[in-house]
Design a binder for these strands. Structure first.
Lengths: 224, 224
DNA sequence: AGGATTCTGTTTGATTTCAAACGAAACGGT
DNA sequence: ACCGTTTCGTTTGAAATCAAACAGAATCCT
């Protein structure tokens, strides 16, 4: 397990915890490790899980299948990403996806109860671990809420302006860079790339925005 | 403060904590209370907050204003709802909304640090409190993720079927009730109510679904 | 029972988006 | 400098949504 310490320390869950304490800590957490061959299933959809998975090697797919059995890939995980934390922490829920190894992979399992229960033996970093977990969940909440705000807008134009406005607010300037290219921005906003490009052109012609590559500027308030 | 104990005990944050421990607990948390007149502002957008608010009386609006100063009401809070928990727990963030009292209101403030730091004096329920907080954040995460899945679908029909499929999966049956009326469902899915009704009719005619009021049945897999 | 209100389904024309295709520009590697 | 790939803007017809309006059904209230 020691060979994965550098991966583990890169995980937000162990942020601010020194690598030297890992051995005793992982012990204290009753952490187990398992390897999966390519194609193996780590968890099945509907499983009631009580452990959080931390991917330390390989590549996992989160696969969702609807009532009719159609499967779709919800996300791809690479080290040191985690999975199952919301389901574990949220209580009685069951996993809404299957977890499948797309490459030979290794996963560290951390018991949820052991994480959120401060140990009587005064494990120094346990409190920090809990704060990290809370921070991770809260952060994800904020990101989801922000995205939701943009996506709930009805038209492509509104979605785009909602997004650009948000970034401008965050940066505190009406001129800023965005971290997406066109296709990524379209995916993020759940619209068609071509339609997005077309709207951008219109807004530029109308003098509302200007842009060049990833740099954008808000010029004036849009009509309506 | 005692008169609000019944409200407080209804908050998910204090679930499983007996009312008798409230006095000592709220003390231990360094909890403060403030009253606001109708129209008063509890927090301003952009404030860096370190306390979680628990509304015990009145009614609050979360108001967001974009870069151009247009304001919109994001949510309405009634007791015993909380606010600011994601921002506090998420670390360096600033409040993305203003909090305004729409009626004469009273708010309990709980210091974030005091909540997530188990006290040395072995406050019995502190651990439970932390688990509750984690549970709240995780739960919200799951709800947001589910909604996101439906809303990112491109067409009204896809959004509807994604939602109905999810409910059917949860209920474990292809025949089920939903907790929304038409307008609420349309709002939840971010589509036009009339367009939603029209799509529902089409799907019924096509033999894909059947419904009556809030009761739905999935009959067969949709084409495409 | 009667009347007002809310909820739902349907239609309409205008608007918007989708999906696919294409060319130009930018980029990267050899 | 060359070629292949990716990115971006534009156009097109087809399809879907919006927004508004209206009527019937259900519900609530007195």
């Amino acid at each position: 397990m020691k060979k994965y310490f550098s991966i583990i320390s890169a995980s937000p869950l162990f942020q601010g915890i020194s690598g030297e304490s890992f051995s005793s800590m992982l012990d204290c957490l009753g952490c187990t490790q398992r390897a999966y061959e390519k194609g193996a299933t780590v968890f099945f959809e509907g499983d009631a899980i009580s452990e959080i998975g931390l991917l330390v090697r390989g590549r996992l797919h989160l696969v969702k299948s609807d009532v009719w059995g159609n499967e779709s890939i919800v996300a791809e995980l690479v080290p040191p990403e985690m999975f199952g934390e919301a389901v574990c922490c949220g209580g009685a829920g069951r996993l809404p996806v299957s977890v499948v190894a797309k490459e030979a992979s290794e996963v560290l399992f951390l018991g949820y109860k052991k994480i959120v229960t401060t140990c009587p033996s005064a494990c120094t970093f346990h409190a920090k671990l809990i704060r990290n977990m809370i921070g991770i969940l809260a952060e994800k909440n904020i990101l989801l809420s922000q995205k939701m705000e943009h996506i709930t807008q009805r038209t492509t134009k509104e979605k785009l302006l909602s997004y650009l406005g948000e970034i401008a607010r965050q940066r505190g300037s009406k001129s800023f860079d965005i971290p997406f290219n066109r296709q990524e921005l379209a995916d993020y906003l759940s619209v068609e790339r071509s339609a997005l490009s077309a709207e951008m052109s219109k807004l530029r012609k109308a003098g509302v925005i200007d842009y060049r590559k990833n740099h954008f500027a808000l010029l004036r308030e849009p009509d309506g």
